[in-house]
Design a protein around this nucleic acid. Structure first.
Lengths: 201, 201
DNA sequence: CAAAACGTTGGCAGTCGCTGACAGAACGGA
DNA sequence: TCCGTTCTGTCAGCGACTGCCAACGTTTTG
């Protein structure tokens, strides 16, 4: 997939991971706003200028994972059969996320990251913006396979599915039992299944 | 309502409106990112320091209107009868927005502002964050009148309704006919009406 | 009417995120 | 070995934003 790079790209990824790890540790220890880019750079032993050569912004250190999520979701949607109701397609696309919450270590790490995000207005804003971008992309993907669909309704359907996702994630991030993430998501998505599916017009 | 202030508060509001008007003109003329706070301050004849005594941030100049929207929505939800399905309550709460789009001048102004917002990633992020806050507030409001409701599902329902709203607004902001805003919203909300209403458990 | 109390304002200096430009070091290939 | 590419640090600067202090005007009080 994306792993088609030379040695340089590999080294770059490694450095990025190192920065992200150090940064996350600092964020967890003292908060996002209270951690300066200089501190992060010093922690990994590089200049502030070099930090910005690996991440476009301080937000990106945490939110970069969302790029991969976006790719995964788009791929999952593309792989589903054409006739399938969009709601089911979206629900299936979320499966990998549920799997992530099945593993204890990854689940708690994810919850910690989410807590960092929701604790900082600045980060939360950037996070929601990325989610919005992902929704746009998925809407395009879904529109491509249903020529005569209604774009506005489709966009709303995708947004609705993400509302379920966001509700479930926020809940487990704010003290809710992370083990029940899947059931939370399913409960929301079952209740919110659209009455009229756009492809049924 | 909120108009219970003395002369000082009145003068403050007037200055705020003046700043907002000047700022919006600059944003429309040369873009949000390209307009500095110093320019805005100079345009209204005050120091940058004073600007920040009226608005907490540059974003706030544009997004402050959302505070009023939040109040209106919360009030509209509170006024609706207890037994009414949440979906209808939310749809009714959006009525004032539709009325706004009925008036030509306000409609075009709203579309212009929305275009400013969606043209700047920074602003869009802040905008989405405020919308998220409003949703949180409406969720609380709705939960208060349905004791044994499911908070996650309720949050998802509110998020779904806002997804419809966002889809309709974005569409009219990006070239869509603003006059059909109401029909766009209705189409989306009719299609997305939840199959299971949380109060029907 | 003068003095005190209060709120508003501007200037200044400083922090923090972020960027462009430059020069030197490290690396790989020819 | 030399050459070009990439990576790196340093420096200088911009823009958003904040804390501090001094000046001013208005209102209240003795």
């Amino acid at each position: 997939m994306t792993t088609g790079g030379g040695l340089r790209e590999l080294s770059r990824r490694a450095v990025q991971s190192q920065i992200a790890a150090s940064a996350e540790a600092l964020f967890i220890a003292q908060g996002f706003e209270e951690t300066t880019v200089d501190e992060i750079a010093a922690a990994v032993g590089m200049s502030q200028r070099s930090f910005f050569r690996y991440f476009a912004s301080k937000d990106d250190v945490i939110l970069d994972n969302l790029e991969r999520l976006a790719d995964d979701l788009a791929a999952a949607v593309a792989e589903r059969p054409d006739g399938e109701p969009e709601w089911d397609t979206l629900r299936r696309a979320f499966d990998p996320l549920i799997e992530q919450f099945a593993d204890r270590a990854r689940r708690e790490h994810g919850a910690a990251v989410q807590r960092i995000i929701e604790d900082s207005p600045r980060l939360l804003a950037a996070y929601l913006q990325r989610l919005d971008g992902i929704q746009q992309r998925l809407t395009d993907e879904l529109m491509a396979r249903d020529e005569d669909g209604d774009r506005i309704v489709m966009r709303a359907v995708v947004g609705s599915a993400f509302a379920c996702l966001h509700a479930a994630i926020s809940h487990v991030a704010c003290g809710g039992d992370p083990e029940r993430f899947g059931s939370h998501l399913d409960r929301a998505m079952t209740a919110l299944r659209p009455a009229l599916i756009p492809s049924q017009r």
